[in-house]
Design a protein around this nucleic acid. Structure first.
Lengths: 145, 145
DNA sequence: CTGCGATATGTTCGATGAGACATATCGCCA
DNA sequence: TGGCGATATGTCTCATCGAACATATCGCAG
């Protein structure tokens, strides 16, 4: 348990659509899948962390969630799509591991693209709404566990 | 209690971002407010219904939720913004009523605009993801109560 | 001044979901 | 062959949420 903090996080790890880098965290994109489950920043970040760490457990630690929860999110995702997004293996020298399948990578890339374009698309209205809010303060960044 | 189904619903009453008119209901836009509460299709539709019916109770009936729930959603919204989005009055010949404030209308219009532009922005990826889903079927339209 | 209809608010109960533990299993490697 | 580390799963509890029920209040109309 030492390869947790992978170095090269290519793109932003958070699922916010703020229109700006900082700020009170406005706007989340969530895709509702037919199965009833949904794909939001939480699952997307988890997928990314799995791809980087090669382990569900390490990804769960990074996201500060229990292994159980991380695993059940992965189970949901795998069930929602025709092909699994995460391939896992038990045993072995490292004890086991997990990795993104090609489908998993496609889904993650697609989500990031949607996140980016949606962010750009709603930036103007986000700015307008921000001016109408009650708490002007900044207490937040509860990064969707 | 008969003015429920108002006639002139200017724009789409649902909060989906499908990219197409029909289909399995992909994509929801949700704005996370600082207060912890969020503004999604449910509250947006409720706001619209209040504006059309002039009553929290009637809007609640249309959305198939209890008055208590509708009222508490309104309370959340009013608390989240500096000025209330819904102004209500008790008593009177009609028993009372509620209406959108100018701020309320601004917020609703802004949400609809975000919804529309986000829908357009993510259409391509939505189509791609749809091809990867497990259930190709169409059982859904649980319009976010 | 009494009744009506809608707002405003509290309480209670069942379902749902997350968190905390507790194991079981697997495949390498010393 | 026994230990290690990670996956895979079950169970229990507790907080939270919503549905349902119960009132209380208000202002006008009759």
């Amino acid at each position: 348990m030492q390869a947790d903090e992978a170095p090269g996080a290519a793109f932003a790890r958070d699922g916010r659509l703020t229109g700006e880098r900082h700020g009170p965290a406005l706007g989340h994109l969530r895709i509702r899948l037919d199965s009833g489950t949904s794909l939001g920043p939480g699952k997307a970040n988890l997928l990314e962390a799995i791809g980087e760490t090669g382990s569900i457990a390490a990804a769960g630690r990074r996201m500060k969630m229990s292994y159980k929860r991380a695993w059940s999110l992965v189970e949901d995702l795998n069930a929602a799509f025709r092909e699994p997004l995460v391939a896992s293996s038990r045993g072995g020298s490292a004890g086991g591991g997990a990795a993104l399948t090609p489908t998993g990578e496609r889904v993650l890339v697609a989500y990031r693209a949607m996140q980016a374009s949606a962010e750009a698309a709603i930036a103007a209205e986000v700015a307008e709404l921000r001016g109408l809010l009650a708490e002007p303060g900044f207490g937040d960044m509860s990064d969707e566990k």
